[in-house]
């Protein structure tokens, strides 16, 4: 097929709306953010920030709450990503024959995804309440005692379970699609060569699903790392800030403390680190691609 390159003037004209859109909706806020991050700024001085250098970055760097929130987000993101993808993978493989025959099952399994995360937080606040919730009620009725689901030692794990229950169906959906896309000829050929079920899974199916697994892990880690809604509704930032994620830290610094410069500086640090990590992963992936070629 012959392709013709558009003249450069026409190309520029066609690209102009997109460039304007990016400049207005991404470029402008990014520049304002950079200015605020090096300024002494409050709600009263939003239009006339006073440049103060890197003091906001120093304040964030020296703030133990920032590191506590970073550690929480890293742990939360990593653990929920692993659990959701692990469970999603197991469910996708084991439920695949069933879903294939009864496709409405998939619709039911996807239901948790339809609920807003803030609503999930509210729901569990009620479900786990010692005097109003069904779970503690039956624990008291059957065992004469109940776990302290949102106490200082268990709140983190309760949040992990709540997040995992809501988002495992997302991983299940991705893995089911990837599993169904494995060419049947390959599976049949392996079976004819004598591969048992476990070998088939380990040496054929999982390697073919690996790109999907990597993408799912990345998406779920990013989602878990930036968690806000359900954690904020369920435990707030927790006693002593123990369940404050980075998003909650930034929100509280901005709105609750009115420390706009500090909040924006924290978000800039977060952006730079995230960009570096993603760039690094991209470089590694490109090198692997090169090696495979």
């Amino acid at each position: 097929m012959n392709t013709q390159r558009a003249p450069s003037s026409e190309f520029r004209l066609l690209a102009t709306p997109l460039v304007i859109f990016l400049l207005v909706f991404l470029g402008f806020p990014a520049i304002v953010n950079l200015i605020y991050s090096i300024s002494d700024v409050s709600f009263e001085t939003l239009r006339r920030p006073k440049i103060t250098g890197l003091s906001n970055f120093v304040a964030v760097w020296n703030d133990s709450a920032f590191w506590q929130a970073t550690w929480f987000s890293l742990r939360f993101g990593a653990l929920t990503a692993l659990l959701e993808c692990g469970l999603g993978l197991i469910l996708a493989i084991f439920l695949s024959p069933l879903i294939e025959k009864r496709s409405w099952l998939m619709a039911i399994l996807m239901l948790p995804l339809m609920v807003a995360p803030a609503l999930v937080g509210l729901m569990y606040r009620l479900v786990l309440h010692e005097f109003a919730g069904p779970v503690p009620y039956y624990l008291w009725a059957w065992f004469g005692a109940s776990l302290s689901f949102l106490g200082p030692t268990s709140a983190f794990w309760t949040l992990i379970v709540v997040e995992t229950l809501q988002w495992t169906p997302f991983a299940l959906l991705l893995f089911y699609m990837a599993y169904r896309a494995i060419p049947t000829e390959v599976v049949e050929a392996s079976a004819m060569d004598g591969a048992r079920r476990w070998s088939l899974l380990w040496y054929i199916e999982l390697p073919l699903m690996a790109p999907t697994i990597a993408v799912a892990l990345l998406i779920r880690f990013i989602d878990g790392f930036r968690v806000f809604d359900n954690v904020y509704v369920l435990t707030g930032s927790g006693p002593g800030g123990s369940t404050a994620s980075l998003s909650i830290y930034i929100y509280e610094a901005f709105f609750k403390q009115g420390a706009i410069g500090k909040a924006v500086a924290a978000s800039v640090i977060l952006f730079v680190v995230s960009f570096a990590v993603l760039y690094g992963l991209n470089v590694i992936a490109s090198r692997r691609k090169g090696v495979l070629k």
């Binding site: 309440h129 010692e130 005097f131 109003a132 689901f149 106490g151 709140a155 369920l234 707030g236």
Partner: peptide
């Protein structure tokens, strides 16, 4: 006070008191 009091505010405290416990 309940062990979960560290996540309690107005509504949770009311529910606890109203339970009679």
């Amino acid at each position: 006070t309940p062990r979960d009091s560290l996540s309690y505010e107005f509504a949770e405290a009311n529910a606890a008191y109203a339970s009679g416990q």
